[in-house]
Design a protein around this nucleic acid. Structure first.
Lengths: 343, 343
DNA sequence: ATATTGAATGCAAACGTTTGAAAAAATTTC
DNA sequence: GAAATTTTTTCAAACGTTTGCATTCAATAT
């Protein structure tokens, strides 16, 4: 029976009664190889579908050309945009991305990191899980650092390590969003906050609070309600907001999903957007431009983050002597649409 | 200077003046190793942060425990759900997923497949790119087949190979959607079609056509317009539809994105949904439940597809003698919401 | 004291490839 | 036709780990 063991250089060598070195050189167009030999070997190799075993090469050269991307989720527009950016920048350099989804889970994150190191991954892009962030345990990163495997933080960062980071300026994005609502004339602005403890949630929250303070508007405890970033998690909180004795006249959602959930509830109550309630989201997801009314939002340059992160990584590996870690903060941009344009 | 070369078994062996075999056995709790030796070695290994080089093991055992996932895009809800399903099923078995995004590009798909084979990936989940599908060139899959690397088709399939497949029953989903519109009483049903040539597009299109035929309704050429699956690609086509002398009274979108784009245009025209225009999408994306009105749609069990595909793969590798390739077709399910409920 | 056992360790090969140096073969030069 | 030169090929080591078999050494049985 024809076993399907991949054909190796040794097999070819046997066939031509020559040494493996000759085959290797022939296949790599080494100049010291006789023209005929080269042609014959290359032809035969093509014929039998020879494909070099990269595993053995990795072992020999201690290069794997593979990079780890460790993220809490891939089911958001933003995350996939980041990954696309990484792809776009790194695929042409011959790198392969190993995408690991932690589901916000510490144990899984730890396991993935160990595995990536064991597989001699050449670099790791990490957006830490919520559990990690909450717990404050960063021991699992020690070995990454110790191994000097380049580690690039994405979005969620951890101050204690000397690493490169690429993040979006959530704070000023949120600030601008709330400022815009205030400028339009909204007086009572609620916030559908993200999960506690996450940088993105907290930064946006801080932007919201600081902006209110700047304009001497009260920060009302009951106007701040948690969500988990998903559409459906906005429903109950928004209902609660609208049923208050003194309901808000504008809502700032931690992301577009949540804002869209809120939009639905507002409409169900028979209130008009933006006349009765103003609405702002975050992310500039494709759909936000086509809701009715279209959603004012803050754009996060996910793809660009991915590309910047790649640049930071490449800087590090092509490391000049004077290499220094960088912290890139990309600006977010307010996109004004109908949902906040009360005239 | 302390080089950061990962510490190897040989390093440890040198330290204890013993052979690498002993270290290896000690670390793997081999019974023939002296208790003290074992403890000392293990302790030291932990201390210096030894991590086994999996690359060398891969070479030795010809097992890499890594799987390729080759998809055209990851920026849709459905695709990420599939990947999550794969993850959920395969991560616990110790497999690592290598996600490759082809951007519907033939050359990139070919390159990725070659790379995966070179890296001795143990299995490949493939949803072929549109270019591949269009061109009909499947030569790049020959080597996968030849190497007997398990190949599981996802959604977009190719009939000529003996492989396993997991797909969603798009045809009957589309059929049910259109039938529902007809039952409600819509008479002129347009279709915002996906890109030509793709199985999903064509199957849904076929379901649409066949259903119309079943109910003796005319299939009108000008009611069928192409989109590229994205929200914005629905805008112009929908406008064109609504500005016809005899405009449709219902629109079946190839996916939710497109339907949501159409929803926006319909509302802009001042028409009411579902009274003036009925609307149905496809995918049951999270947002579809919270648009206003909520969107009638067809759910595609992405996560389940991922898990089924995993099952097919595992069947194949744990291969019983009597292993046979399977073609799983999961049903899609009509989800009736407000956008089509004209009473 | 010697043979026998058992425990602990070492040797060497293997996985597939590359590469500097050495060797062999072919060609040129006188 | 031998020496010198050039071209082509082979050898051997290396990457890090595992594993069957051989070896060593001490303890026990005779």
């Amino acid at each position: 029976m024809n076993s399907s063991r991949p054909v190796t250089i040794k097999d070819i060598a046997r066939r031509f009664r020559c040494s493996p070195s000759t085959v290797s050189r022939a296949l790599n167009d080494h100049p010291a190889i006789n023209e005929d030999t080269r042609k014959n070997i290359q032809e035969y190799a093509r014929e039998v579908g020879y494909q070099r075993n990269e595993v053995s090469l990795s072992l020999l050269n201690k290069k794997t050309a593979s990079l780890g991307v460790v993220v809490p989720t891939i089911s958001n527009y933003y995350e996939t945009a980041v990954i696309e950016g990484l792809h776009q920048a790194l695929q042409p350099m011959g790198y392969t991305l190993n995408i690991c989804v932690t589901n916000e889970n510490y144990a899984l994150e730890k396991e993935y990191l160990a595995k990536l190191l064991s597989n001699r991954t050449e670099g790791i892009f990490l957006s830490v899980s919520q559990e990690t962030y909450d717990s404050g345990y960063y021991e699992h990163l020690e070995s990454v650092i110790q191994r000097k495997t380049p580690l690039i933080f994405i979005d969620r960062e951890y101050e204690d390590f000397e690493t490169s980071r690429a993040t979006v300026d959530d704070y000023h994005g949120a600030f601008a969003a709330v400022e815009h609502l205030i400028n339009i004339g909204y007086k009572n602005i609620a916030h559908l906050k993200g999960p506690n403890g996450l940088t993105v949630s907290e930064q946006r929250f801080k932007g919201y609070v600081d902006c209110l303070k700047k304009y001497d508007m009260p920060v009302q405890e009951e106007f701040i309600i948690n969500t988990n970033f998903k559409v459906e998690s906005a429903i109950v909180p928004t209902k609660r907001l609208l049923e208050m004795a003194m309901p808000p006249d504008a809502i700032f959602g931690v992301n577009d999903q949540v804002a869209i959930g809120a939009m639905r509830v507002v409409k169900d109550k028979g209130l008009r957007i933006p006349q009765d309630v103003g609405l702002v989201g975050f992310d500039n997801s494709p759909i936000s431009a086509y809701t009715f009314p279209s959603l004012t939002t803050v754009s996060r340059p996910g793809r660009k983050i991915g590309m910047e992160a790649s640049r930071l990584f490449l800087n590090q590996v092509n490391g000049a002597e004077d290499f220094k870690h960088e912290s890139i903060v990309l600006p977010s941009e307010l996109i004004i649409r109908e949902s906040s344009l009360r005239i």
